[in-house]
């Protein structure tokens, strides 16, 4: 069977890695290429680069970064943040990325999912969704979680699956930053609804949380940022822990 994946996420601003807690007090965390290489050597199964640059001008630097990462690392990586059209996707993939992740743009125009998937294949089309419970209902939020919509999370992920998404990156805003664990019930429900893999994001605080995401949330992969960046969990330790608990993990 296919192994459960561990995915560090690197936030990128103007071509540099930044670290912050809940997007405040962003600090420069150095060269993304070096960090990517470090994670790859430590056994990360895949990487996600999320461009949080504020301006279009800053976002142009992502292509150079993608090129350098592709030259240096030999595991798959995805790029997200500010991607809204096929020509940008093409440029990112041609520079060496394996997948792109789209979020707000899909909400604005769901057919962009189909256009990207038709042009480059569903295997490289991740749709990232930020969900938050409002009056007991999971609703989609956009623009880094700052704008609410009335889209039901579970209806939305089924819709983008039908439009050609190959994978869902689900971040629970209720869990993000809490370090209290992933949104297990929502993940498990999504797993039942969908035939494509789901990456769990938001809430990882310890190694057990990944075990829960894989076994209770039925996620295909677990994504985290700060716990890896701040060295709270080392990837080899996490993988050994998960293997000992009976998970199918690439050592």
């Amino acid at each position: 069977m296919v192994a459960k994946r561990i995915i560090p996420c690197l936030d990128i601003k103007n071509g540099r890695t930044v670290k912050g807690i809940n997007f405040v007090e962003l600090k420069d965390a150095g060269d993304p290429v070096e960090l990517a290489q470090k994670y790859s050597n430590a056994g990360a199964d895949e990487l996600v680069f999320l461009d949080i640059s504020a301006t279009l001008e800053e976002r142009e630097t992502i292509y150079d970064l993608v090129k350098k990462v592709g030259e240096c690392i030999n595991i798959p990586f995805a790029v997200g943040g500010g991607i809204s059209e096929v020509n940008r996707v093409e440029k990112i993939l041609k520079n060496g990325a394996d997948k792109v992740s789209i979020n707000s743009a899909a909400v604005r125009d769901p057919l962009v999912v189909k256009r990207i998937s038709d042009a480059f294949g569903s295997q490289c089309t991740i749709v990232a969704v930020d969900g938050k419970q409002v009056n007991g209902k999971w609703l989609i939020h956009t623009h880094g979680g700052t704008r609410s919509t009335d889209l039901d999370l579970f209806e939305w992920v089924q819709k983008v699956q039908d439009l050609g998404a190959g994978e869902i990156l689900f971040t629970s805003m209720d869990n993000d930053g809490t370090k209290a664990g992933f949104a297990l019930e929502a993940l498990a429900y999504m797993d039942e609804l969908l035939s494509i893999p789901v990456i769990a994001s938001g809430g990882a605080g310890n190694m057990e949380h990944f075990h829960e995401a894989f076994n209770d949330g039925m996620a295909s992969a677990g994504l985290a940022a700060s716990i890896f960046h701040f060295g709270e969990i080392e990837i080899p330790d996490l993988k050994n822990y998960l293997i000992k608990k009976g998970n199918n993990i690439r050592p």
Binding site: M1, A3, S122, Q123, G166, E167, S195, M218, S220
Partner: peptide, 15 residues
Amino acid sequence: EFDSNAMKVPHMGWN
């Protein structure tokens, strides 16, 4: 082709 959603398609990841 799988009967259950437990088997995801695409087959994606390390095997």
